[in-house]
Nucleic acid binder design. Structure first.
Lengths: 158, 158
DNA sequence: GGTTAGGTACTCGGATAGTGGATGTCCGAGTCGCGTCGG
DNA sequence: CCGACGCGACTCGGACATCCACTATCCGAGTACCTAACC
């Protein structure tokens, strides 16, 4: 039940894009962290479909943040890459056990399903409460040179 | 990033076993919910290795809870089946970016890794705070006949 | 009748196939920029 | 000198392979029970 690698890539890509105004192509971002370019491109496409990034084709094209970093939560990115399904898979096996089952939705009535959903909501709440801007502020506090370093390296790789 | 089916099976198996004193073989538990017997057996073996169940071979053998249901949290079961790894996979891609990296563990210092870990801890805290006994109490409150029904059906399937 | 040895059936446990999603790669469609040609 | 047109290169986007973990199954090892023979 581990997350896709793409989540880490997407998080760092969004942070770096928040420091840059011009579009950045996949190849540059991939070189930045030595990632497989074509596969990273696939993940960025997913973020575009989710409305987190915008893309531009052709020369001087690439990806940019679609909205202010304050408006992009970590949950947005995780859900975009991993999909909206819940962590806990409830196949309602109770409906095969003894008792009456007519019209009962065990995703709602099963005590295990409820407990798992409550725990998952706590997780989602934490992720929804942290934005890319929050993380950026943390990084800039500990490493004030990070934005300039990133911009310089990106320019170098163009 | 969905959980294995085995988690749901393991949860319900532990609850049912908490209502029964004698060992229950895999085949009986599998028939109870119409699950594939051999695969369920594999999951129960995992719970034995985790110290949640005990097993007995031979006639009149099967699985029992290894401890009181108060001492088995939902987290115990999830970790037993899914493994102890964290949900978020931090491959420390920051170590490929600009800046100094000598002796830096980005699983600790990366702001994203910290945020993801905090969220995951909230999830784990919820799961650790709910025991099989808690769920059993919920079920018995809503369905007082459940324990007797379960015992009867299990006896019928033996 | 009690005891013991043997056989049998039952159950767990790990070794062994099959399948779906994550991972990784490649090529076509579209777009922008630059160079060139004409006015 | 200015503008328009066309060519070329660059980038995204989706279609196509590959790999690993989850899913599922089967058979061997061990154990308890039952039976029957013997003392």
């Amino acid at each position: 039940m581990r997350m896709s690698r793409g989540v880490e890539w997407a998080l760092h890509a969004c942070l770096n894009l928040s420091w840059l105004d011009d579009p950045v192509p996949t190849g540059t971002l991939a070189a930045f962290y030595e990632l497989p370019s074509a596969y990273l491109n696939k993940q960025l496409q997913t973020l575009v479909r989710a409305g987190i990034l915008t893309s531009t084709s052709g020369p001087r094209g690439g990806f940019r943040l679609a909205r202010a970093p304050e408006a992009v939560s970590l949950l947005d990115i995780v859900v975009a890459i991993e999909g909206p399904e819940e962590l806990f898979r409830c196949d309602q096996i109770l409906s095969k056990g003894p008792g009456e089952h007519a019209g009962v939705d065990y995703r709602q009535s099963c005590a295990f399903a409820r407990a798992m959903r409550d725990a998952e909501l706590a997780w989602r709440r934490e992720l929804a409460g942290k934005s890319v801007a929050d993380v950026r502020a943390d990084v800039e506090h500990g490493h004030p040179e990070a934005p300039a370093n990133t911009r310089a390296r990106i320019a170098e790789l163009r």
